[in-house]
Nucleic acid binder design. Structure first.
Lengths: 225, 225
DNA sequence: GTTGAAATGATAAATATTTTACATTCTAGG
DNA sequence: CCTAGAATGTAAAATATTTATCATTTCAAC
């Protein structure tokens, strides 16, 4: 379960006033999906905004060989498919349900009516979208410019900003590896080295960052700018 | 000179009605920059929207070692810095002038007034932004999942969609290599192989796609989904 | 036409990364 | 407290990629 797009992504519904959120919900259809059920398919052109109500949606790409690589897990309040409302572009990802989930589906026409009436919707959407773009740019830059060790440290650091009080990242090495675009073996080596440097602690299904500013300093020193 | 964000990115100003575009221009300050002059610095938090009027802006990252790696070149009508208006995030890139350029700079407060008055601005911004996100996601996915050969073919294909009538991509191998996150040597090998397959023709400072549907078919067959 | 800078082509050695395979550790659920 | 499945640890061989050079080609300016 991973979080490329979840890292500090503002929650769409929470960015809206309760009154506006209520209107959006009222205009939507609440759909229920069972575990693993496909919600949207990569390549599809059917427009519409989706917002997670309960459960979680798994964002990724199904390979021709039956494999599935995950990009993000979206939880309650988070939206997806928004670009189908403003562009003619096909969907980039396959989205399926993790466990049983309830998703609000809002059609293009109903969305357009609300969008025109409530300017705060565009603000919330732009905030969500621009933050995602920002994360993607940072990620892309890290993948292209930085060696695995530095890349790992940098991504762990940015993920840590969303932890609030906690200092523990709940993530499997395999997922983290995919986020970074490397194999689990290579990631393991990087984590081990970061651990040796005293910057992180490796756990079972988690990574602990005991000393946040230490990691932050190291990244600043070693990752340029 | 490269185009990661330029590939089929809708031109912000052209998405607006002439009347609204006029208002935005009227509210802005037109700044002139000489060749190589820094327009914005990575890490800066000062908000404001920038729109290229004349010339071009170079988007990239200055390494600690003095190197500069380019991500995109933005031309007339294209905007940047928009995420500083809607989020608290620091700028991701260094932006400098290529040749002499004229850039409209619009302050946060003036932007907010126009934004509230003209709903079409948010539509144009969302279109631009979401398209960029879309391209970034496709790129990130390609970098993570595909071997260099496939990755190269896919990126060439998506770049070719913006050529209109022409079938020639004006780009140096070195720039293309950076876009793909590989070295020039590796890219050269990939191009040579694609050329051997009859999918492209390699030129000096350019790549020709003589048979668009051939490349398209090959990508479909070899890049999954 | 020459010429020189810019871009591409080509090669081998050095590295980095993946693949493959198996061992070990952890943890939830009986 | 056991145990099976899930996750991590490890190591060697195979592969891919980069680095470092140098030769060759192209093109634009003179």
């Amino acid at each position: 379960m991973l979080n490329l797009l979840k890292i500090s992504t503002p929650n769409f519904l929470e960015l809206l006033s309760p009154a506006v959120a209520e209107q959006i919900i009222a205009a939507s259809v609440l759909m229920k999906y069972s575990d693993g059920q496909l919600i949207h398919t990569r390549g599809s052109l059917k427009p519409g905004l989706s917002i997670v109500h309960k459960g979680a949606a798994q964002v990724g790409v199904n390979g021709i060989d039956g494999t599935f690589v995950m990009v993000a897990a979206l939880g309650p309040g988070e939206c997806f498919g928004e670009f189908t409302l403003f562009t003619e572009l096909p969907r980039t990802h396959d989205i399926s349900s993790t466990g049983e989930s309830h998703i609000y589906q809002l059609s293009q026409t109903r969305f357009d009516i609300l969008y025109q009436r409530e300017p705060s919707i565009s603000r919330a959407l732009l905030n969500t979208t621009l933050t995602r773009t920002h994360i993607l740019l940072e990620m892309l830059d890290a993948i292209r410019r930085l060696p695995i060790l530095e890349r790992t440290a940098k991504v762990l650091l940015s993920m840590s900003y969303t932890l609030g009080g906690s200092n523990t990242l709940q993530t499997r090495q395999a997922d983290l590896a995919y986020t970074l675009g490397v194999t689990r073996v290579s990631l393991g080596k990087a984590l081990k080295e970061l651990s040796r440097l005293g910057l992180i602690e490796i756990g079972y299904g988690k990574v602990v960052i005991p000393n946040h500013s230490g990691l932050s300093d190291w990244v600043e020193q070693n990752c340029g700018t």
